[in-house]
Amino acid sequence: MPPSNPDPTDAELVDSFPYVQVDHDTKHFYRGWLERRLLVNRCGDCGHWHHPPKPVCPQCLSGSLEPTEVSGRGVIHLSMLLHQGPRAPGVDYVAGPHPVVTVELEEQAALRITTTLVDGPEAAAIGTPVELTWIERHGSPFPAFRTRGS
């Protein structure tokens, strides 16, 4: 979705992300992607964060949830290097393995986002501090991480 469309319809939103299932629980999360903002569900009552988006807070069962922008800073918690896998634009398994990292966000223990690391496979060690960046996937923004100084 080009930035010139500030308020995409639900149909445009769904069409922007053909590789995931966007529904009424996840639509805010993916609308955030269109604006290059990582919005994670936070409970309006108890402040607990959770991901992926659920209809209630698993900590206190409140339905009062706020998609809330996170700092984007975190640490690599899981790291694998794909030597083969699903096809995706910009991913060339022949040129080298594709890193897939699960990053624990600084907002809360075990609050994690899984995506790729733009620095390449050598940089994808567990424990590495990273920060959010954005790449393109099928013409839409896609969150990724890059390393940062500790």
Binding site: L82, G85, V100, T102, T115
Partner: peptide
């Protein structure tokens, strides 16, 4: 099946958590 590389759903999760086990 995962439809993009950056999903752990199903089989890839075992490689990801194996990395943690090694670590």
């Amino acid at each position: 099946a995962s439809v993009i590389p950056e999903m752990l759903m199903g089989a890839p999760a075992y490689a990801a958590w194996a990395s943690r086990y090694v670590h």
